[in-house]
Computed example of a mutant assay.
Amino acid sequence: MRTTRSVVTAAVLIMMIGLGLEARDVLGQVAQTRRTQTTENIEGITVSGKATAYARPDLMEIDLQVASASELTADAIVKYRDAKARIEEAFENLKLDQVEVAELGLLVDQKGPSPNQYGGIDPRATLSAKPEVQLSRKLVVRCSAIEGRDEEELLQLVARLLDVAQDAGGIVGPPPGVNPYQYSSRGIDLSLVRFVVEDFDAVQEQAYEAAIADARARAERIARLSETELGPIVAIQELSRPGDPIANVTRVVLPNEEPPREGRLESNRLQDVPVRVELLVRFQLRPAEDEGADTP
């Protein structure tokens, strides 16, 4: 009986030792795999590359507002049609091939009292004013192919377009009901003229090329200081590109204003517009070769 117990105990011990050895081998393989994966993950360097190129604006835009209001909706429609027709006819009479008038969405709302310079509304105006139906539309006067014109010629053209718009009854500047004091104090651009770059593919290619060269120069310096050799590019991430909205920046939009268009660059100044690119580039790193080693 004792012999049987001893045999069973010995068998259990042998089995436990075997399981322990197998578990150790498995854990060793897992640890080795983790070390290998970690080594593979850190065998590289990630640097940022930045570059800025400049593009000349090729389009000029002027925002106008045509609006009409009346207590009767039918009267407001008639007034709106007449006002819009006057503006369109005025620009057609200029006979400028590179100037066109584009229409944005029609807005139908209720006309209210205008705010004062302090951002408030006179309560006496709300008591005496009767509700009126208001029709308004934003018109964009676009002048293309301006990159070949000098500053004086563009100034004369801007003056001519603004004078024609105001003489025809167009509203130049902020739309009706917008307090310019309130929005100018919050850093909102209320400029009359906008200069646009729509075709910047060639300049963007130059910016990408310069950003990659900048990243390579940074990586080569770090590799030299760490006594390693820089390998090929293994990954590229685009952090920012021209025409995209700025991240983490809250944009304050005017009431009933359409969101900004993507894929183009805008400036309120007549100057070269910067085309900025930022990339995150990952290079492979290799151990530096020993120059003094004997060659076979």
Rank of each mutant, 00 (worst) to 15 (best):
S267A: 07
E88H: 03
L104W: 05
L239M: 15
A10V: 11
P296Y: 08
D199C: 03
S48F: 10
D199Q: 14
M1T: 13
A215I: 11
N268H: 12
T228I: 03
L94Y: 01
L162Y: 01
V178G: 08
A217G: 09
V249G: 00
E257S: 14
L96G: 09
L280T: 04
R218S: 14
T228E: 11
E198L: 08
P123I: 05
A168K: 00
R282Y: 06
A159S: 12
L162D: 02
K50Y: 13
E152N: 11
L254I: 10
Q65R: 05
D58T: 02
A11D: 06
R56W: 04
L19M: 12
V249R: 07
S136I: 01
V26L: 12
D244N: 10
R35T: 10
L265T: 02
Y118Q: 09
G112H: 12
D75A: 10
A31V: 14
K79M: 05
M15W: 12
I17N: 10
Q166W: 00
K138S: 04
Y208W: 13
D167E: 15
V30P: 00
G243T: 05
I87W: 01
T9W: 11
L135I: 11
Y54E: 04
R276Q: 12
R282V: 03
E71P: 04
T33C: 02
L280A: 11
V66P: 02
V108I: 15
Q98M: 12
A288N: 07
E257C: 09
E153D: 13
Q37A: 15
I146M: 06
R269P: 02
L155W: 06
E291I: 13
P259M: 03
T39I: 06
E71H: 07
A217Y: 13
V277G: 03
V196C: 05
L135C: 05
V249P: 01
A159L: 07
P123C: 02
V8Y: 10
G28H: 05
L162V: 11
Y208M: 11
T295N: 11
E22W: 12
R218Y: 10
Q29M: 08
L96P: 04
F283V: 08
E266R: 08
V66M: 03
A168H: 01
R124A: 15
V140N: 00
A83T: 01
F283R: 09
R218V: 14
I121G: 02
M16A: 15
V164Y: 01
Q166F: 01
